[in-house]
Amino acid sequence: MSALTPLRGPARVVVRQHRWTLWIAGGLALAAVITLIVTALRSAHVVDAFESGPCSVEGDPGRSCYQPVRNYLDTTFALNGVGNYAALLLAVLPVIISAFVAGPMIARELESGTFKVSWTQSVPPAHWLAAKLAVPAALLLAGVPVLTAVLSWARSYADTPYPAQWHDAPVFSTSGVLPLTHTFFGMCVGALAGLLIRRTLPALTVAALVTGTALTVLTYWRQELWPPRTLTGETLNAKEGMWWVETGDLTSGGERLTGTACSRSSSEGDRLQCLTDHDITNHYLDYHPASHFWPLQLVETGILLALTATAVTVAFRLLRRRTG
């Protein structure tokens, strides 16, 4: 407890300085949670009411079922869109946090010189920076897991008739532990950018760009973070829920030909001749099963935590070097 005592004063100042922003953020988070809960319950009601009726979305609905089926699909599509917007908000939250910490929280004080008030009142620079990080970290730790859990729960009610795949980028990035990891990473990148640039607008711009770029790169290379499984055969019996990484052909010597070399053959005879010409005897599919969800999550989390720790360490060393 003694180590936390010096942070109480600076932390209280941070809360007071940004109280309106915190109130607005809390209100938006609460509104998002309520909206997701209402949407999920409404989705469950719509699905139950339709499935208890005589109509079905499978096959030809017939004249009598055409309008009920269309109304059902339109309603569920609209309700599913609410969850998609919530997922988008959660996905861009790290960028918003990064920009806010870099600009209004740190760079603005350094640019205006108001930080001197704290530093001349027996508050060491390290405690000042620690408070700047501790306040948003505590709020994110309290709020982001709740939003993530409610969104995942709401998705379970929107799986019919528009199921979301676990490996879709908007789903994967807003599930598990990644939302919290992403926001912590954005927060620390913002702190470092604010200390380096010391001007509000350039700092928040650079922080947002760095955070967005880093998360985009990780999303692009996510499938490479864990070894995929391989399925081979003359016909590939791919199952639902597989994340396809790469597919192609195999020669008699086991050499891989990425893609399907003979897929554009106009006739069966041409296709057989193409297979013979390329010495293709089999096909392969590299994929991630649903069981790879947590390995992929944890590897990406480890990478981001390492980058986060690096950003925090550099930020404190930079502050100590500039302040002596």
Rank of each mutant, 00 (worst) to 15 (best):
L4R: 01
Q17P: 06
R19F: 15
I24K: 05
A25D: 02
G26L: 09
A32H: 02
A32N: 08
V33C: 10
I34A: 15
T35R: 01
V38S: 10
A44C: 06
A49Q: 11
A49K: 05
P54E: 15
C55L: 08
C55K: 02
V57R: 07
P61V: 05
Y66D: 15
P68V: 05
V69S: 13
N71L: 14
A78W: 14
L79E: 11
V82T: 06
I97R: 02
A99G: 09
I106S: 10
F115R: 09
S118F: 14
S118W: 11
S118L: 15
Q121A: 15
P124A: 12
A134C: 10
P136Q: 04
P136L: 03
A137T: 08
A142Y: 01
A142K: 00
V146C: 08
L151F: 06
L151S: 09
S152V: 10
S156N: 12
D159R: 02
P161W: 03
Y162H: 11
T181D: 08
G186L: 03
G186D: 04
C188A: 12
V189T: 07
A191I: 02
A193G: 06
G194E: 07
T200M: 13
L204T: 08
E224V: 08
P227H: 00
R229Q: 15
T235P: 05
K239R: 14
E240P: 10
G241R: 00
M242I: 04
S252P: 09
G253C: 00
S263C: 07
R264L: 14
T281G: 07
Y287S: 09
P289M: 01
S291G: 04
W294L: 13
W294S: 09
L296C: 09
V299L: 04
E300L: 03
G302C: 01
A309F: 06
V314C: 07
R320V: 08
R321K: 12
T323V: 14
